[in-house]
Amino acid sequence: MSPVEPPVTSPTDLAAAYAALADPVSAAGRARPIAGGTDLMVALTGELGAPPATVVDLWRLDSLRGITLDGDVLVLGALTTYTDIRRSTTCGEHLPALVQAAMTIGAAQIQNRGTLGGNIANASPAGDTLPVLLAADASFILGSVRGEREVPAEAFWTGYRQTALAPDELVLRIRIPLRSGREMRFRKVGTRRAQSISKVVLGLAWRDHGEMPDTTGPPGAWRDVRLALGSVAATPIRARATEAVLEGRFPTPETADLAATTLADELHPIDDVRSTAEYRRLVAARIVHRLIREAGGW
């Protein structure tokens, strides 16, 4: 069906954006912010749920752009596009897994418009950057007329396409603590090699004991393990049971077996149009097995 054309305002500063979102119409929960538009524009036909009644265009909020280092924290503005991330030497140096994730999203056209904040707020379980953000202990700065607050990524996605955002609240910035000795791996199994939506997407992070000046013990053991996955549940999730069995262990064949088995037990994906539940469960476990195998060099 042809798209609807709801009223839109294009504020140029945050205060105006907050005000537009706090408008009574927005209080009804129906005004929707648009960033790069790669999700919202598709909703205008009304075939995938009710189209927005009014729209607040965030594209002119230049204060939400930019990739910077704030001490040991990597800070990305919510309007940072995937192309920005791909081109950022700062991201490439400090969080290459995020660059890898950005590269797998859509193709040039989508990467030029789609934003990190949009990926977060859209809350698709298949959002490809989201496991990276979870595995990296990211937190999100949210803003509204009431001021700013910080919500950790792991508390942000509360249900299928549900978030901790109030109806009048925006994602402003993404803060990612940079930890010494952290290794991170990203893998996406998608439907094809570009313009692809994930069947399983995951980020695995750990700190090598030997690289950590503040701890003692044998080098090579994994600490602060984070395993985050997308497309295997209603939200992006952390696999905490698997993280627990990996914590403090060495990347040996036994560890890999244990982690894969634990993960397969821990996940409860579903069949859908893109894949089967069992494929997702099996592939997630096999990828983790592979990543541990590669880390262990066996």
Binding site: K199, S275, T276, Y279
Partner: peptide, 24 residues
């Protein structure tokens, strides 16, 4: 990939329904 992995691992449930079979 679902059908290939099902065959590789001997796990038919990974493949999902065959063409012509009704979805659950």
């Amino acid at each position: 990939p679902e059908r290939i992995l099902a065959a590789l691992t001997g796990r038919p449930d990974v493949a999902g329904p065959r063409p012509g079979e009704s979805e659950p």
